[in-house]
Simulated assay, not measured.
Amino acid sequence: MTELIRPELVCPAGTPAALKSAVDAGADCVYVGFRDETNARNFPGLNFNRKELEDGIGYAHARGAKVLVAINTFPRAGHPEIWHAAVDDAARLQADAVILADIGLIDYAARTHPDLRLHLSVQAAASNPQAIRFYAERFGVRRVVLPRVLTVPEIAAINAIIAPIETEVFVFGGLCVMAEGRCALSSYATGQSPNMNGVCSPASHVRYVESGHGITSQLAGFTINQFGLNEPAGYPTLCKGRFIANGKTSYLFEEPTSLNTLTMLPDLIKAGVTAFKIEGRQRGRAYVAAVVQAFRAGIDAVMAGQPVPDMDLDCITEGGRQTTGAYEKAWR
Protein backbone atom coordinates (compact mmCIF):
# COMPACT_ATOMS: atom_id res chain seq x y z
CA MET A 1 0.00 0.00 0.00
CA THR A 2 1.38 3.41 -0.98
CA GLU A 3 2.11 5.62 2.01
CA LEU A 4 0.01 8.77 2.09
CA ILE A 5 1.91 12.06 1.98
CA ARG A 6 0.67 14.74 4.36
CA PRO A 7 -0.47 17.72 2.26
CA GLU A 8 0.36 21.27 3.22
CA LEU A 9 -2.53 23.51 4.25
CA VAL A 10 -2.14 26.78 2.33
CA CYS A 11 -4.24 29.59 3.78
CA PRO A 12 -5.16 33.14 2.75
CA ALA A 13 -4.07 36.31 4.51
CA GLY A 14 -5.25 39.66 3.21
CA THR A 15 -3.93 41.55 6.26
CA PRO A 16 -1.25 41.10 8.94
CA ALA A 17 -4.00 40.23 11.42
CA ALA A 18 -5.32 37.50 9.12
CA LEU A 19 -1.80 36.13 8.70
CA LYS A 20 -1.44 35.71 12.44
CA SER A 21 -4.90 34.14 12.67
CA ALA A 22 -4.05 31.63 9.93
CA VAL A 23 -0.72 30.66 11.47
CA ASP A 24 -2.20 30.37 14.95
CA ALA A 25 -5.07 28.21 13.62
CA GLY A 26 -2.68 25.68 12.10
CA ALA A 27 -1.75 26.83 8.59
CA ASP A 28 1.37 25.23 7.12
CA CYS A 29 1.67 28.06 4.59
CA VAL A 30 0.11 31.50 4.24
CA TYR A 31 -0.19 33.28 0.92
CA VAL A 32 -0.21 37.07 0.71
CA GLY A 33 0.14 39.91 -1.76
CA PHE A 34 1.76 43.33 -1.93
CA ARG A 35 -0.41 46.42 -1.69
CA ASP A 36 -0.46 47.16 -5.43
CA GLU A 37 -1.68 45.77 -8.75
CA THR A 38 0.85 42.92 -8.80
CA ASN A 39 -1.62 40.64 -7.03
CA ALA A 40 -5.14 39.57 -7.98
CA ARG A 41 -6.78 40.85 -4.80
CA ASN A 42 -5.83 44.51 -5.15
CA PHE A 43 -8.58 45.98 -2.96
CA PRO A 44 -8.42 48.98 -0.58
CA GLY A 45 -7.53 47.95 2.95
CA LEU A 46 -6.00 44.65 1.89
CA ASN A 47 -2.47 43.32 1.40
CA PHE A 48 0.96 44.13 2.78
CA ASN A 49 3.56 46.85 2.52
CA ARG A 50 7.19 45.74 2.66
CA LYS A 51 7.62 46.23 6.40
CA GLU A 52 4.38 44.37 7.17
CA LEU A 53 5.48 41.46 5.01
CA GLU A 54 8.89 41.36 6.68
CA ASP A 55 7.21 41.20 10.08
CA GLY A 56 4.69 38.63 8.86
CA ILE A 57 7.40 36.36 7.49
CA GLY A 58 9.22 36.60 10.80
CA TYR A 59 6.04 35.72 12.71
CA ALA A 60 5.30 32.73 10.47
CA HIS A 61 8.85 31.38 10.40
CA ALA A 62 9.13 31.59 14.18
CA ARG A 63 6.12 29.23 14.37
CA GLY A 64 7.17 26.81 11.65
CA ALA A 65 4.93 28.18 8.89
CA LYS A 66 5.86 29.37 5.39
CA VAL A 67 4.85 32.53 3.52
CA LEU A 68 4.12 32.53 -0.21
CA VAL A 69 3.83 35.83 -2.10
CA ALA A 70 1.25 36.00 -4.89
CA ILE A 71 2.52 38.14 -7.78
CA ASN A 72 -0.10 36.71 -10.07
CA THR A 73 -1.38 39.46 -12.35
CA PHE A 74 -0.04 40.14 -15.83
CA PRO A 75 2.39 43.10 -16.20
CA ARG A 76 1.48 46.03 -18.40
CA ALA A 77 3.20 45.82 -21.78
CA GLY A 78 6.48 47.72 -21.66
CA HIS A 79 6.15 48.56 -17.96
CA PRO A 80 7.06 45.51 -15.84
CA GLU A 81 8.97 47.54 -13.24
CA ILE A 82 6.64 47.14 -10.26
CA TRP A 83 6.24 43.42 -10.98
CA HIS A 84 10.02 43.00 -11.08
CA ALA A 85 10.31 44.95 -7.84
CA ALA A 86 7.72 42.70 -6.21
CA VAL A 87 9.74 39.59 -7.12
CA ASP A 88 12.97 41.25 -5.96
CA ASP A 89 11.46 42.27 -2.63
CA ALA A 90 9.87 38.89 -2.01
CA ALA A 91 13.28 37.30 -2.49
CA ARG A 92 15.00 39.90 -0.31
CA LEU A 93 12.50 39.43 2.51
CA GLN A 94 13.05 35.64 2.38
CA ALA A 95 9.61 34.58 1.25
CA ASP A 96 9.41 30.81 0.89
CA ALA A 97 8.06 31.04 -2.67
CA VAL A 98 6.47 33.38 -5.17
CA ILE A 99 3.27 32.49 -7.03
CA LEU A 100 3.51 33.73 -10.61
CA ALA A 101 1.30 33.61 -13.71
CA ASP A 102 2.98 35.66 -16.45
CA ILE A 103 5.57 33.75 -18.45
CA GLY A 104 7.83 36.78 -18.82
CA LEU A 105 7.78 37.40 -15.09
CA ILE A 106 8.51 33.73 -14.42
CA ASP A 107 11.51 34.00 -16.72
CA TYR A 108 12.69 37.13 -14.88
CA ALA A 109 12.39 35.44 -11.49
CA ALA A 110 14.18 32.29 -12.64
CA ARG A 111 17.10 34.26 -14.11
CA THR A 112 17.40 36.91 -11.41
CA HIS A 113 16.76 34.81 -8.30
CA PRO A 114 17.77 31.21 -9.10
CA ASP A 115 17.37 30.15 -5.45
CA LEU A 116 13.82 31.51 -5.13
CA ARG A 117 11.17 28.79 -5.17
CA LEU A 118 8.65 29.29 -7.99
CA HIS A 119 5.00 28.24 -7.91
CA LEU A 120 2.76 28.54 -10.96
CA SER A 121 -0.44 30.44 -10.22
CA VAL A 122 -3.85 29.10 -11.11
CA GLN A 123 -4.06 32.22 -13.29
CA ALA A 124 -1.69 30.50 -15.74
CA ALA A 125 -4.35 27.79 -16.26
CA ALA A 126 -1.90 24.89 -16.69
CA SER A 127 -4.21 21.88 -16.62
CA ASN A 128 -2.35 19.12 -18.49
CA PRO A 129 1.02 17.35 -18.06
CA GLN A 130 2.57 18.95 -21.14
CA ALA A 131 1.93 22.51 -19.96
CA ILE A 132 3.06 21.70 -16.43
CA ARG A 133 6.28 20.04 -17.61
CA PHE A 134 7.06 23.04 -19.83
CA TYR A 135 7.06 25.42 -16.87
CA ALA A 136 9.05 22.99 -14.72
CA GLU A 137 11.69 22.14 -17.31
CA ARG A 138 12.08 25.62 -18.77
CA PHE A 139 11.93 27.72 -15.59
CA GLY A 140 12.33 25.35 -12.66
CA VAL A 141 8.77 25.77 -11.37
CA ARG A 142 8.35 23.43 -8.39
CA ARG A 143 4.58 23.54 -7.81
CA VAL A 144 1.52 24.15 -9.98
CA VAL A 145 -1.84 25.39 -8.66
CA LEU A 146 -4.34 23.45 -10.74
CA PRO A 147 -7.41 25.15 -12.27
CA ARG A 148 -10.77 24.27 -10.75
CA VAL A 149 -11.93 22.29 -13.80
CA LEU A 150 -10.47 18.83 -13.08
CA THR A 151 -12.03 15.77 -11.48
CA VAL A 152 -10.20 13.87 -8.74
CA PRO A 153 -9.32 11.00 -11.13
CA GLU A 154 -7.95 13.54 -13.62
CA ILE A 155 -5.81 15.11 -10.88
CA ALA A 156 -4.52 11.68 -9.85
CA ALA A 157 -3.60 10.89 -13.46
CA ILE A 158 -1.71 14.18 -13.83
CA ASN A 159 0.19 13.60 -10.59
CA ALA A 160 1.23 10.13 -11.72
CA ILE A 161 2.78 11.61 -14.87
CA ILE A 162 4.42 14.83 -13.61
CA ALA A 163 5.98 13.67 -10.31
CA PRO A 164 8.04 15.03 -8.57
CA ILE A 165 6.45 18.32 -9.65
CA GLU A 166 4.00 19.29 -6.91
CA THR A 167 0.33 20.12 -7.34
CA GLU A 168 -1.88 22.38 -5.24
CA VAL A 169 -5.67 22.45 -5.44
CA PHE A 170 -8.40 24.68 -4.04
CA VAL A 171 -10.45 23.04 -1.29
CA PHE A 172 -12.65 25.85 0.02
CA GLY A 173 -13.94 29.28 -0.94
CA GLY A 174 -15.35 31.25 -3.82
CA LEU A 175 -15.69 29.85 -7.31
CA CYS A 176 -15.39 31.54 -10.68
CA VAL A 177 -17.36 30.65 -13.78
CA MET A 178 -14.58 31.92 -16.05
CA ALA A 179 -11.54 29.95 -17.21
CA GLU A 180 -8.72 30.61 -14.78
CA GLY A 181 -6.60 33.51 -15.91
CA ARG A 182 -8.93 34.49 -18.71
CA CYS A 183 -11.56 36.63 -17.01
CA ALA A 184 -12.13 40.07 -18.48
CA LEU A 185 -15.84 40.36 -17.68
CA SER A 186 -15.43 43.02 -14.99
CA SER A 187 -13.50 45.26 -17.39
CA TYR A 188 -16.52 45.63 -19.67
CA ALA A 189 -18.34 47.49 -16.91
CA THR A 190 -15.54 49.12 -14.93
CA GLY A 191 -12.48 49.19 -17.18
CA GLN A 192 -10.61 47.01 -14.68
CA SER A 193 -10.16 43.25 -14.58
CA PRO A 194 -8.60 40.85 -12.06
CA ASN A 195 -5.92 39.57 -14.42
CA MET A 196 -4.50 42.98 -15.34
CA ASN A 197 -5.42 45.25 -12.46
CA GLY A 198 -5.99 42.76 -9.67
CA VAL A 199 -9.60 43.78 -9.11
CA CYS A 200 -12.87 42.10 -10.01
CA SER A 201 -15.79 44.49 -9.55
CA PRO A 202 -13.76 47.14 -7.68
CA ALA A 203 -15.44 48.62 -4.62
CA SER A 204 -15.13 52.15 -6.06
CA HIS A 205 -17.73 51.17 -8.69
CA VAL A 206 -20.17 49.46 -6.32
CA ARG A 207 -23.41 51.08 -5.17
CA TYR A 208 -26.32 49.83 -3.08
CA VAL A 209 -29.64 51.65 -3.62
CA GLU A 210 -32.35 51.22 -0.99
CA SER A 211 -36.05 51.48 -1.71
CA GLY A 212 -39.31 50.45 -0.10
CA HIS A 213 -39.05 47.12 -1.91
CA GLY A 214 -35.51 46.24 -0.81
CA ILE A 215 -31.97 46.85 -2.07
CA THR A 216 -30.61 47.10 -5.61
CA SER A 217 -26.91 46.38 -6.14
CA GLN A 218 -25.13 48.18 -8.97
CA LEU A 219 -21.72 48.00 -10.63
CA ALA A 220 -20.60 51.06 -12.58
CA GLY A 221 -24.23 52.07 -12.98
CA PHE A 222 -25.42 48.66 -14.16
CA THR A 223 -28.02 46.87 -12.05
CA ILE A 224 -26.60 43.50 -11.05
CA ASN A 225 -29.16 42.24 -8.57
CA GLN A 226 -32.23 43.13 -6.56
CA PHE A 227 -32.86 41.82 -3.05
CA GLY A 228 -36.01 41.74 -0.95
CA LEU A 229 -36.40 43.57 2.37
CA ASN A 230 -35.28 40.56 4.41
CA GLU A 231 -32.88 39.07 1.86
CA PRO A 232 -29.10 39.43 2.40
CA ALA A 233 -27.59 41.68 -0.27
CA GLY A 234 -24.61 40.08 -2.00
CA TYR A 235 -21.64 41.84 -3.56
CA PRO A 236 -22.34 42.84 -7.19
CA THR A 237 -20.07 40.86 -9.49
CA LEU A 238 -21.27 40.44 -13.07
CA CYS A 239 -20.97 36.67 -13.22
CA LYS A 240 -23.04 36.27 -10.05
CA GLY A 241 -25.77 38.71 -10.93
CA ARG A 242 -29.45 37.86 -11.22
CA PHE A 243 -30.83 38.70 -14.65
CA ILE A 244 -34.07 38.34 -16.61
CA ALA A 245 -33.77 36.11 -19.68
CA ASN A 246 -36.77 34.80 -21.63
CA GLY A 247 -39.04 36.18 -18.94
CA LYS A 248 -37.33 34.21 -16.17
CA THR A 249 -35.28 35.78 -13.38
CA SER A 250 -32.27 33.67 -12.39
CA TYR A 251 -28.54 33.60 -11.74
CA LEU A 252 -27.71 33.43 -15.42
CA PHE A 253 -23.98 32.66 -15.22
CA GLU A 254 -23.31 31.29 -11.74
CA GLU A 255 -25.24 31.03 -8.50
CA PRO A 256 -23.58 32.31 -5.31
CA THR A 257 -22.12 29.18 -3.73
CA SER A 258 -18.82 28.13 -2.16
CA LEU A 259 -16.48 25.24 -2.82
CA ASN A 260 -16.20 22.89 0.15
CA THR A 261 -14.26 19.64 -0.22
CA LEU A 262 -14.00 18.57 3.43
CA THR A 263 -15.68 15.25 2.70
CA MET A 264 -13.35 14.68 -0.27
CA LEU A 265 -10.06 15.14 1.59
CA PRO A 266 -9.26 11.39 1.66
CA ASP A 267 -9.72 11.16 -2.11
CA LEU A 268 -7.61 14.24 -2.81
CA ILE A 269 -4.82 12.99 -0.55
CA LYS A 270 -4.87 9.58 -2.29
CA ALA A 271 -4.68 11.43 -5.61
CA GLY A 272 -1.24 12.70 -4.61
CA VAL A 273 -2.04 16.38 -4.12
CA THR A 274 0.81 18.20 -2.37
CA ALA A 275 -1.10 21.16 -0.97
CA PHE A 276 -4.67 22.22 -0.19
CA LYS A 277 -5.48 25.86 -0.83
CA ILE A 278 -8.20 27.89 0.88
CA GLU A 279 -9.51 30.89 -1.06
CA GLY A 280 -10.31 34.19 0.64
CA ARG A 281 -7.67 36.90 1.00
CA GLN A 282 -10.48 39.45 1.01
CA ARG A 283 -12.11 37.75 4.00
CA GLY A 284 -11.76 38.71 7.67
CA ARG A 285 -9.67 37.00 10.30
CA ALA A 286 -12.69 35.19 11.81
CA TYR A 287 -13.39 33.49 8.45
CA VAL A 288 -9.73 32.57 8.10
CA ALA A 289 -9.50 31.09 11.59
CA ALA A 290 -12.72 29.07 11.24
CA VAL A 291 -11.87 27.54 7.86
CA VAL A 292 -8.25 26.83 8.76
CA GLN A 293 -9.24 25.10 11.98
CA ALA A 294 -11.79 22.95 10.13
CA PHE A 295 -9.37 21.83 7.42
CA ARG A 296 -6.53 21.37 9.89
CA ALA A 297 -8.75 18.98 11.83
CA GLY A 298 -9.83 17.26 8.61
CA ILE A 299 -6.31 16.67 7.30
CA ASP A 300 -5.05 15.48 10.69
CA ALA A 301 -7.96 13.05 10.95
CA VAL A 302 -7.31 11.52 7.51
CA MET A 303 -3.60 11.13 8.21
CA ALA A 304 -4.43 9.40 11.50
CA GLY A 305 -6.71 6.96 9.70
CA GLN A 306 -9.85 8.48 11.18
CA PRO A 307 -13.01 9.79 9.47
CA VAL A 308 -13.21 13.49 8.62
CA PRO A 309 -15.07 15.32 11.42
CA ASP A 310 -18.53 16.59 10.54
CA MET A 311 -18.17 20.38 10.60
CA ASP A 312 -20.82 22.91 9.57
CA LEU A 313 -19.37 25.80 7.56
CA ASP A 314 -22.67 27.08 6.13
CA CYS A 315 -22.42 30.34 8.03
CA ILE A 316 -19.29 31.39 6.16
CA THR A 317 -20.04 30.05 2.69
CA GLU A 318 -21.23 32.28 -0.13
CA GLY A 319 -25.00 32.32 -0.20
CA GLY A 320 -25.01 29.71 2.56
CA ARG A 321 -24.57 27.02 -0.10
CA GLN A 322 -21.78 24.55 -0.77
CA THR A 323 -20.58 22.50 -3.73
CA THR A 324 -17.76 20.11 -4.60
CA GLY A 325 -17.50 21.84 -7.97
CA ALA A 326 -15.74 20.10 -10.85
CA TYR A 327 -13.99 17.60 -8.57
CA GLU A 328 -16.99 15.31 -8.89
CA LYS A 329 -18.70 16.81 -12.00
CA ALA A 330 -22.07 15.47 -10.98
CA TRP A 331 -23.64 17.03 -14.08
CA ARG A 332 -21.98 14.51 -16.42
Rank of each mutant, 00 (worst) to 15 (best):
S187D: 13
A136H: 12
H84D: 04
R142Y: 02
G56L: 04
G272L: 03
V292L: 05
A330K: 08
L262I: 04
P307R: 10
A101C: 05
A290L: 07
P153E: 15
D107P: 02
V171G: 05
R321G: 11
Y251R: 06
A91W: 04
I71A: 02
I215L: 10
A157H: 11
L19F: 10
P194L: 09
C176Y: 12
L146Q: 04
G280L: 09
L238N: 00
D107V: 06
T151E: 13
C200Y: 06
E255A: 14
E3G: 14
D300M: 02
R143L: 04
G140W: 05
L19Q: 10
R143A: 04
G174S: 15
A156Q: 13
P16R: 05
Y327M: 11
L4R: 15
L219C: 10
F222N: 04
Y31Q: 06
S217P: 04
L68N: 06
P307H: 09
A203Q: 09
N72G: 03
G58C: 08
I99W: 00
R283F: 10
D102A: 05
V292G: 00
L19H: 09
A62M: 13
A275C: 13
L219R: 01
A109E: 01
V199K: 08
L19P: 09
A289K: 10
P153F: 11
A86H: 01
P236E: 07
F43R: 09
A301T: 04
R321M: 14
F276M: 08
P236A: 07
R285G: 05
A60F: 11
D36Q: 08
S21H: 13
K20H: 15
A330R: 13
I103G: 03
I99C: 03
A203C: 15
V144L: 04
D102R: 00
Q226Y: 07
K329N: 14
G198F: 01
E81T: 09
Y135P: 04
E254W: 12
N197S: 13
T190S: 12
R143P: 02
T324C: 14
V32N: 00
G272C: 09
A65W: 08
G325N: 05
A109N: 03
S217I: 03
E318S: 07
H61Y: 11
D55E: 15
Q293I: 02
R111W: 01
P12K: 06
L53T: 02
N128E: 12
Q306N: 08
D28E: 12
V206K: 00
A203D: 07
R111V: 04
G191T: 13
L120V: 03
A110Q: 04
W331M: 11
G33T: 06
T2P: 15
P114T: 03
R138L: 11
S193Y: 08
N42Y: 07
V69W: 02
I99T: 01
T249E: 15
F170K: 03
F139K: 05
E328A: 09
L116H: 02
Y135E: 05
E3D: 14
V122N: 12
T263I: 06
D310I: 06
F243Y: 15
V87Q: 01
E231A: 07
A17V: 14
P16Q: 06
R148F: 13
N225H: 05
I224Q: 02
G26F: 00
E279Y: 11
A289I: 08
V288N: 02
S258V: 11
A163K: 15
P236M: 05
A109Y: 01
V199R: 14
A17C: 06
G298K: 00
C239E: 10
